[in-house]
Write a protein that binds this DNA or RNA. Structure first.
Length: 556
DNA sequence: AAGCCTAGCGCC
DNA sequence: AGGGCGCTAGGCTT
């Protein structure tokens, strides 16, 4: 649903081509918009179907959008709250536009001027959504204020995602290549050939397992397990964790092979060729991809950039990377959600886990971390389960909160994040199973399976409230950082401090060195803002660690 | 050839 | 019997 801009009575700018039959070239359009934007004191909020669809082209034309309302993303949230399917008109029919793609059809050519239905639908949807965001849904439902905040944060995230793709993460292909060469040997002439170091390790493993050179497909788990067994290693799988349990001379080189093979397959030269150009890594980010509200990615693997290669992420000369990480975000979120004052006190410093040790609740930082992760994920075994009783005594409100979220899921109910994002309900098969198991004459096996499925859904809802609220905090943080860095008068986005990376609880800003302190302040201040936005006067703090570095690998 | 699944491992 | 993802390779089905 493309774009003409118009004022609507509440001061919102609406993206619609209703009433306009003129064909306008997009550059011309963008220029007109830019002038109009610059003349305003009160920044407009653009309303459009899909930020990822429309914003890249505007950015390329030099137009930055400060605020928007993403109909598709907001509708998905509201649909979840109201338990209805998402609006079909907002289904994505065209792939999102690559920020660096050569200009395709202009915005106006994408919809013939004689067909205004999509635009009219956009107007109607926006009216509906505005009403829905303001509607009181009764006790226990998210407030209009919270949903509006969530809509704004989600939409701001969508803008930031496009801007990050547009700017790209500064990345040294030379450094990456050097790193690969150091680990694997020189780049083979053909992509199928095994680099020297990898080949050497493969032959070593074959020899140690008693196989002839070139006869063992190390990348095939089935073949490898068989070969291990033939060599007297009682392996059930080829997972690194299991292999380490076995004592055999072939294990060490095999683990090394697997590590290098992984590096080559996931982030080797092919990856470099595909994703790094002109000194920038431009992965895709997908806001709202995960039901909890976390972002996803669909190309480039932005959210899985291995620590091993982060040294290749390098600021431009004279610039720095300001890398900020929200310290122990999820347990802090839980402390705030549950109003657990003991946990809030433990989190008064920068290290919540150390604070838990200091309060005497647990013996070690490692124990604190494992225990909290287990509590938030629903772990029932190992060390995390052993620590749980102590956590329960020390932080009863926090533990009760996640337990109640788990029980709700086990009953087949939905749960909500702080701002109201609602978990999906289990499917029909799940319900059927629970009913059958509860009926008279159900077999022991049926009851056991139903119980297991219920527990599993409970682990999902248990985690949903924490992971989802953490995602809301992170979106609010990002939106705040973006707002604080915003200055449309100072030229293009990439000539001033700008966001380049986001990783669930971590933000990175690429900035001229002499502006690093200002950026650091923005990152810290926005984090404090985010805490207040979500939790008001809660005593829980949300400290961020900030590193000003030239290479991402130096942070942390 | 394309699509789907699993194994395994990378990130949080 | 620990939550959420994406990606690759192998291996199967269509």
């Amino acid at each position: 649903m493309p774009i003409v801009i118009d004022r609507v009575p509440d001061g919102v700018l609406l993206a619609t081509d209703a009433g306009t039959t003129e064909r306008v070239a997009s550059a011309e359009f963008a220029g007109a918009v830019a002038r109009r934007e610059a003349a305003r004191d009160d920044p407009p909020r653009w309303v459009w179907s899909d930020t990822a669809q429309w914003y890249p082209e505007l950015l390329r034309a030099g137009v930055r959008v400060e605020r928007c309302h993403d109909l598709r993303l907001v509708d998905a949230i509201l649909a979840g709250v109201d338990g209805r399917p998402p609006e079909p008109a907002l289904r994505r029919t065209v792939a999102p536009v690559t920020p660096t793609a050569p200009p395709g059809p202009t915005l106006f050519e994408l919809v013939a001027p004689e067909r205004h239905e999509p635009a009219r639908a956009a107007v109607a949807l926006h009216a509906e959504q505005s009403a829905a965001l303001a509607r009181d849904r009764g006790a226990g439902s998210p407030s209009a204020r919270d949903l509006a905040l969530l809509a704004a944060a989600e939409s701001a995230g969508a803008l930031a995602a496009v801007e990050m793709q547009h700017a790209g993460l500064p990345y040294s292909a030379v450094a990456h290549d050097a790193l690969l060469t150091e680990a694997l040997g020189a780049r083979p002439v053909t992509p199928e050939a095994r680099p020297a170091r990898l080949d050497q390790l493969a032959k070593q493993v074959e020899a140690l397992l008693g196989a002839a050179p070139g006869t063992l497909a190390l990348d095939s788990p089935l073949e490898l397990v068989a070969a291990l067994r033939r060599a007297g290693i009682p392996a059930d799988s080829t997972r690194a964790g299991e292999l380490r349990q076995h004592d055999h001379p072939a294990i060490a080189p095999l683990l090394h092979y697997k590590q290098l093979s992984r590096l080559l397959a996931a982030n080797g030269w092919a990856w470099l060729d595909e994703w790094v150009h002109d000194g920038r890594f431009r992965p895709s980010f997908v806001p709202g991809a995960v039901v909890t509200g976390r972002w996803g990615s669909d190309g480039g693997g932005a959210l899985q950039l291995p620590k091993q290669i982060r040294g290749a992420v390098r600021a431009d000369p004279g610039w720095v990377l300001v890398v900020a990480d929200a310290a122990q975000l999820e347990p802090r979120i839980l402390a705030a959600l549950s109003n657990d004052s003991a946990m809030a006190r433990a989190g008064a410093g920068v290290d919540l886990y150390a604070g838990m040790v200091g309060s005497g609740a647990v013996d070690s930082r490692e124990q604190a971390k494992l225990g909290m992760l287990g509590a938030m994920y629903g772990g029932t075994t190992g060390q995390s389960a052993r620590v749980l009783p102590r956590l329960q005594r020390a932080f009863p409100h926090a533990i009760r909160f996640v337990e109640e979220a788990a029980r709700a899921g086990e009953r087949g109910e939905s749960v909500r994040t702080r701002l109201g994002r609602t978990s999906p309900l289990p499917g029909e098969a799940w319900r059927e199973r629970q009913l059958l198991a509860a009926a008279e004459g159900a077999s022991e096996a049926q009851r056991r399976e139903a119980r297991s499925a219920a527990r599993s859904w409970g682990r999902f809802t248990r985690n949903f409230v924490v992971q989802g609220t953490a995602a809301e905090w992170a979106l609010s943080w990002m939106a705040g950082v973006r707002r604080r860095l915003w200055s449309p008068d100072q030229g293009p986005l990439t000539e001033q401090p700008h966001l380049v990376f986001f990783l669930h609880d971590e933000l990175m800003v690429h900035a001229p060195r002499d502006r690093a302190a200002e950026v650091e302040h923005a990152l810290r201040a926005a984090a404090a803002d985010a805490g207040r936005l979500l939790f008001g006067a809660s005593p829980v703090s949300f400290p961020v660690t900030v590193a000003v570095v030239e290479r991402y690998g130096e942070a942390k």
